[in-house]
Write a protein that binds this DNA or RNA. Structure first.
Length: 591
RNA sequence: GGGGUGGUAGUUAAGUUGGUUAUAACGCCGGCCUGUCACGCCGGAGGCCGCGGGUUCAAGUCCCGUCCAUCCCGCCA
């Protein structure tokens, strides 16, 4: 216990058991109700709020002081906890059985007129206004709660890792730029004209160096930086729980990750994550069309290419002739409620993902289909198609035709879109799964190979002979993503610790030896000095906290977030600096 | 880089086929009120309708551009 605290209690802790207790409270005024002879104020702090009452039992000084009290003033109140009179009890308030009869009200701080009303009446200010005045927004119970959950989750993760022999070690924030991946944030060097530091996209290389350095279980709650366009769940700087283990198996890394996830969920929600099913990447794509499936609901995808191989309907025919696929899924009971407007909106939705269109069909009695899908499905296979899709009278079937790389994301995202639209997703549930066995490489638009994960990801040992063959696209990696409710919350892999294999990967990626030495020489060099087998993963901590709090935006789980154009509206960053400062850094702006 | 939505008192919103002095609620200022609890009642102040052009006798309203916020595509190993 701290010895020098001036408050005796928090606003949120007072209950009937405190009746008769003299208290000193400090907090913000969240409501004032002056009835003339008697006045009330609600005093709020991090822990909750309590009604302060000024009446004939109060001192004259308190009665005078309350006249000057306004919303969001900061007060120190002295008084005594009393039971509220019968009929004056407020059941909507946790401390509604009691009130504090004030004997002294001291205004510690006043406020200018507020830029927005700080209440949770549903109508809140535009996000722009709230971000510009983040210090006020943070007082709202929602953000108070979210940041508390964030703290509890971080401590729970630390607790689990500390208890299993992990060491928390910091790695540099000023580091060097590496090729591939996201754009780097760069920092010019004053001492070395023309040279630049990069902020880390993740501590990846350093954690591998720590393994070579003998710290066989490392973790860090690390800030990461990526200069890419933002989204609902992406910020330019974000936080990872970064983990690396020497002498791992895939099962060990997954066990550690499950331990961390379980600790976070247990500590914040009181319920752990349970047994997490494992799904291959191939199965995830096949069933859900995406590599981070939302498994809180069914509505899985089915492949119809073989059944429809004799179809003549042009979209189907041309897709098949071009080596594409026909896939589809069923929306149960949707035929009645799906107007042309709804179906057109679904069609527009899949077009955003590069799909030419959506062949919908309403299923009626005896399997009669109406709509474009009817033309796509030859009569002789109609029943077989409906059976494959599990479609019956009253359902809507949705088919997509084209290249697999368009059909899967289009239908996969539509599946989730429709589930949200039709309220098919149970609230407050968490459907975790592991997705494993990702491809090692994928073809870029220019035909070159790129890493699906990153260049240090180990191939599955049995696939190593495929290097340099025309079957490189079939190589799988020893990697694993942790997925919850359609969101990738963690990912990692077993790393390459054999310099020969590492060289094969670089060769496959078309990274020359010169470039390898220049960009990663320090890692490759380290790996040649007795590198232990190692592997690990990183949690996207912000996304975990989003799930734990039900936040609808990543900005609601970060104290001082940036806008989608990467500005901090509070501080005004990024900002221009005096030319002299640029001169010192040997930099000149072209704008 | 592309597309959708939004920007009107401090805040949140309304504003009709383009037409008199741009409304309301909350907040703010002044007053009244002894049991309120989103207290209530009376009165008041408060506007570059995001910004810049254009059409028109007339623009918050129509057109073009631009900035900001937000959501999505691309991007994010």
């Amino acid at each position: 216990m701290l010895k020098h605290v001036t408050r005796t209690h928090t606003c949120g802790q007072l209950r009937a058991e405190h009746i008769g207790t003299p208290v000193v409270l400090q907090g913000w005024v969240s409501a004032v109700r002056d009835r003339g002879g008697v006045a009330f104020a609600v005093l709020r702090d991090r822990f909750g709020s309590v009604q302060i009452t000024v009446d004939e039992r109060s001192t004259d000084a308190a009665r005078a002081a309350v006249k000057g009290v306004r919303l969001e003033y900061v007060l120190q109140v002295e008084g005594t906890v009393q039971a509220r009179a019968e009929g004056a009890v407020n059941n909507k308030m946790e401390s509604g059985d009691i009130e504090v009869i004030a004997t002294s009200i001291q205004i510690l701080s006043r406020t200018q007129p507020l830029p927005f009303v700080l209440d949770d009446r549903g109508e809140s200010a535009l996000e722009e206004t709230r971000l510009r005045n983040r210090f006020l927004d943070l007082r709202r119970p929602l953000l108070q709660h979210n940041l508390r959950v964030r703290h509890v989750a971080a401590q729970a993760a630390r607790g689990f890792l500390n208890g299993t022999e992990f060491l928390e070690i910091e790695t540099p924030v000023l580091t060097r730029a590496t090729p591939e991946g996201a754009r780097d944030y760069l920092v010019p060097s004053r001492v070395h004209p023309g040279s630049w530091y990069a902020l880390p996209q993740s501590p990846q290389l350093f954690k591998q160096l720590l393994m070579v350095g003998g710290f066989d279980r490392y973790y860090q709650i690390a800030r990461c930086f990526r200069d890419e366009d933002l989204r609902l769940d992406r910020q330019p700087e974000f936080t990872q729980i970064d983990i690396e283990i020497s002498f791992p198996s895939r099962e060990l890394v997954m066990e550690v990750a499950e331990g961390v996830a379980n600790a976070m969920w247990e500590a914040t929600l009181g319920e752990g994550v349970g047994t997490i099913p494992v799904l291959s990447y191939a199965d995830a794509m096949d069933l859900y069309g995406v590599d981070a499936p939302d498994r809180r609901f069914e509505m899985t995808l089915h492949t119809l290419s073989a059944l429809l191989h004799e179809a003549t309907f042009p979209p189907v025919r041309s897709a098949l002739d071009a080596g594409g696929v026909i896939r589809g899924f069923t929306v149960k009971g949707a035929a009645a409620g799906s107007s042309r407007k709804v179906l057109d909106a679904w069609t527009a939705f899949v077009k955003e993902y590069g799909l030419g269109g959506l062949m919908w069909g309403k299923v009626a009695a005896e399997g009669v289909i109406s709509g474009p899908a009817a033309k796509a499905i030859p009569e002789e296979v109609r029943e077989a198609v409906l059976a494959e899709l599990g479609a019956e009278d009253g359902d809507v079937i949705l088919l997509g035709a084209g290249e697999l790389r368009h059909v899967n994301p289009g239908l996969g995202r539509l599946r989730v879109h429709i589930a949200k639209e039709r309220d098919l997703i149970p609230e407050g549930t968490f459907a975790f799964c592991w997705v494993v066995d990702f491809p090692l490489f994928e073809k870029a638009d220019d035909g070159s190979w790129t890493s699906v994960h990153h260049p240090f990801t180990a191939p599955r040992p049995e696939h190593i002979p495929l290097f340099g063959t025309d079957r490189m696209g079939e190589m799988l990696s020893d990697s694993y993503d942790l997925v919850c409710n359609g969101s990738e919350i963690g990912g990692g892999s077993i790393r390459i610790h054999d310099p020969v294999v590492q060289a094969q990967v670089f060769e496959a990626l078309g990274i020359s030896e010169t470039e390898q030495q220049e960009k990663f020489g320090f890692l490759l060099n380290a790996l040649s000095y007795g590198a232990p087998p190692h592997g690990g993963l990183a949690f996207g901590f912000d996304r975990c906290v989003m799930l734990l709090t039900g936040a609808t935006s990543i900005r609601d789980v970060i104290a001082f977030p940036k806008t989608t154009s990467a500005q901090d509206l509070l501080s005004g960053a990024p900002a221009r600096v005096p030319t002299k400062d640029l001169d010192d850094l040997h930099v000149r702006s072209t704008k």
